[in-house]
Design a protein around this nucleic acid. Sequence first.
DNA 1: CTGAAAGCGCTAACAT
DNA 2: ATGTTAGCGCTTTCAG
Lengths: 344, 344
Amino acid sequence: MIAERNGNNLGITVKDIAQKAKVSTATVSNVLTQKKFVSEKLARRVCDAVSALGYRPNNYARSLKTNRSYMIGIQIPDITNPYFGKAVEVVQAEAIVKGYHVTLYTTGNAIETERRNIEGMLNSRVDGMVCVAPRLRVKDVLDAVQIPVVIVDRLPVATDRNAAFVYADNYSGAAAIAEHMLARGYTRFLHLSGPVALVSNASERLKGFVETLEKRGVRKTDCRVRNGEFTFECGYGMMRDVLRKYNPAKGVMAAFVGSDIMAWGAMEALHDRKMRIPRDMGIVGYDNIDFSRFLHPALTTVENPIGEMSYRAAHLLLDALEKGRNLAGMTVMAGAALIERNSC
Amino acid sequence: MIAERNGNNLGITVKDIAQKAKVSTATVSNVLTQKKFVSEKLARRVCDAVSALGYRPNNYARSLKTNRSYMIGIQIPDITNPYFGKAVEVVQAEAIVKGYHVTLYTTGNAIETERRNIEGMLNSRVDGMVCVAPRLRVKDVLDAVQIPVVIVDRLPVATDRNAAFVYADNYSGAAAIAEHMLARGYTRFLHLSGPVALVSNASERLKGFVETLEKRGVRKTDCRVRNGEFTFECGYGMMRDVLRKYNPAKGVMAAFVGSDIMAWGAMEALHDRKMRIPRDMGIVGYDNIDFSRFLHPALTTVENPIGEMSYRAAHLLLDALEKGRNLAGMTVMAGAALIERNSC
DNA sequence: CTGAAAGCGCTAACAT
DNA sequence: ATGTTAGCGCTTTCAG
């Protein structure tokens, strides 16, 4: 007999436990999977044998037979960013409740890596995947994949694939910022944007902000825009450049900085110039990252509900997997709420 | 013939491609796994068939046969914390290079969850695992597991299991802080510690700090200690309490706050009281989280080399997996370096 | 309700 | 160097 080593008996199979419980392997399988009714008596015997031998089903064999891995893949740009960390946390928590495991892939915003990752997920035969903020064109990811997918934090595209979209209303969020600034009486505006050409979030925010301002009669020359990346350094650098020829005495400006992290950088640049916020310039960020409320002054921003989005995404995917629901055409848009604090 | 759908042909097997290439399944397997030499001619034919049919090997079948999943599990307390995010990032990057996938588990510092996660990894048959900063007693995790494990960021224990330890020298790091404060001329000291009873990092830091101070002749009454958790709120609350009866005029205090996040909280409490750092109190953190250099004043802290540790951990595990190296008795300790900035 | 047996797709002996 | 074939451990018809 194979020795019972602490809790991890690789050698024990259904056969062994069938033998010990004096039943067939089919019965063992039936009590384990709960798919067919088994009499109390036999079920008891099986369970006893299972714990006596420390049996642990072999998931490869199971998966080979059922063609399901109970594994879902999640891909995010950067695990070091708490915003995406939150997404992973939520998806993982929901998945585990339904008996799914999660495998994680990180892209570093590199398109090539994204392609490789998707290939990797397919190879390791995940049952479904969620892609958070992909840089690869959505069409390209869908083309590569047959299994259910949900794309998070990107604008939906029309598709007949088994794919859903969960995204936030970045346009309205940015529009709310514009309205807020207007209500505060600002007359000069600045937008330090994210990578508009690559990321729909960035372009939606830009559009929402600028269009609202125009609609309310602000002249183009009173609203400057600069494009950059969603990083501290970029926020710092762009603001530093702007500040070179900025004089608050000629009219205080309100700046919508494309993300909280950029906004932090921008605030540093102001600080270095001994400028006070909001006295010399109003600052609004976007995302409502955890730290933003602790900045000085506390950062006015827009809640980007990544937690809610990933929750919805997880459930969509899990429904597709468990109930066979087809995702095609499903989109859910989460709202965006302005969080008023002291920076503008 | 099964239609070739975009890049993901679940129905195609070795058999199909053997047929198409007019070779045996063994030959197909051999060219795919590269374990035996196959002539140019046949290899060519096989590769052509593979890409023509869009074949993708079924990893379940492969794993069932070889008893290897090429999957490693990583468990961390909180994916929302960039410190642990870094660990995941590094392990994932190293794993993928060697052809391994990573599945992620999060504990929320709940011991029960840790136990469940380990169970989950074992069920999904990971080849090895890395546990970062477990709360479960190390002995308990080792007892549960037969596969190679590396424990990161915890003090090693003696074991004959296939387990390695990678940790940082928290004692020296904290000692360096004490020396630094002494050198600056401080005579009154405070330590706001992490969960000393549960986490060896916290207790090591406490020990390193207090013992060094004592060794250098500081009286016990001049060094106060309070225990808490590694959170912003806890840092804030403990410092607020301390401040109720603190008067810098009677001697400026230097506070070693157990982690950067706590230190941030503590700095907020000082700020609320209109106290200036370091004029009214010196503050030193621990971890060198990314944001610490942007705080005002920039936070003096100790580099906790999580990136390096996880790199070493990944390689240890991968060596165990690939080269069959037994990990028993392996420990690697990473150094800790004081980072002098403006808060103390 | 229970058991016998086929077979999921792959790899690795073994045979040629 | 290549082909034949026996399973890996499980689930799932199909009989009984």
